[in-house]
Design a protein around this nucleic acid. Structure first.
Lengths: 171, 171
DNA sequence: AGTATAAGGTGGATATGTCAACGTCTTGGT
DNA sequence: ACCAAGACGTTGACATATCCACCTTATACT
């Protein structure tokens, strides 16, 4: 974070920007990423995007390059570079795909497995920790709320009126 | 986004990574940022962090450098560079602070005001659009949920057991 | 078969965010 | 008055994310 301030510097939220959803979510995301980085850093030298890929492959969610890339939600470009870094450092191996000559298959080396087995429990505990911080009511709707917002974030055109009527059919 | 894929490419979420909160929030944040950038780009050449500063100053939330920086939630480093870029491009002016010789006061130029007045209604409409996509139940708890998660994200140590019992005494 | 279109991966350029070190100024002690 | 600790802004380095152009391979259509 920008926690380079100091301990005595209590962040008072003095403003009403507080109410702006995108702002808050961006702040939250930054904190979550910092937390993840701190945990990962305790157990090795993996970067956060590297860990995401290790996790997807380690969970056997997918092995094909495109499938892994989409599961991890990473951009093509970054994915390419990150996988190469992982190969370079001996965490994963790649093999040409027999189905599609453009793609490749990804598998963990023993080093990769070791990293996954060390980190997965920690991150699972964190996930429980995060969910535990929510009230039951919050927990009940958080996922659908995120999905609704993600969908709403795909539009870039909307009336300037106070319409916002949205047939909240979802969930 | 990484929407460089294509229209026919329907994203099927085949996995259970779906359930990982930090992952979803990071994806959501990316979409929100992309949406904001698209809107801002329609009306000028401001970058997203530049706009955040313009907005804070334009809303008269704060004028002192540190206050603006914290209200905008931007890192010291990025803040320094971004403000300089804004001065360079004639959107804001800075004056030395009489209270604290380390800080400075920030004010919008007429060009800065124009940009603010053009963009603010659009972004307000977007905020309504986003809130409108949520059900009343979701809207009722979204802010407290975000706050709870943000607080929970500040811890990096927790038991590996399936405790996840709340009252993580931090705060 | 032959071709247009699109998906896949790579690399360069750029934007955005984070971290650490520095010099300056303020504050709170003594 | 002095000094130590903290806060501030700046800079450089690096990490992460996005965008775009390119070439190769797959797929759909004819």
């Amino acid at each position: 974070m920008h926690g380079s301030e100091n301990p005595k510097d209590d962040d008072k939220p003095p403003i009403d920007i507080d109410l702006l959803l995108p702002f808050q979510i961006s702040q939250l995301n930054a904190k979550l990423a910092a937390q993840a980085r701190a945990i990962i850093a305790r157990h090795g030298t993996l970067s956060l995007p590297e860990w995401r890929i290790i996790r997807v492959v380690g969970m056997k969610v997918a092995t094909g390059s495109t499938a892994v890339r989409k599961a991890a939600g990473i951009d093509k470009s970054q994915f390419s570079r990150t996988v190469n870094a992982l190969v370079e450092d001996g965490f994963v191996e790649v093999h040409p795909s027999s189905e599609d000559r453009r793609q490749f298959e990804i598998s963990l080396t023993s080093k990769g497995h070791a990293a996954h087995d060390r980190l997965a429990p920690e991150l699972d505990a964190r996930q429980r920790h995060l969910l535990g911080a929510l009230s039951p009511a919050e927990r009940a709707v958080i996922h659908s709320a995120i999905r609704a917002l993600a969908r709403a974030a795909e539009q870039t055109e909307f009336n300037l009126d106070i319409d916002s009527k949205g047939t909240q059919d979802n969930a």
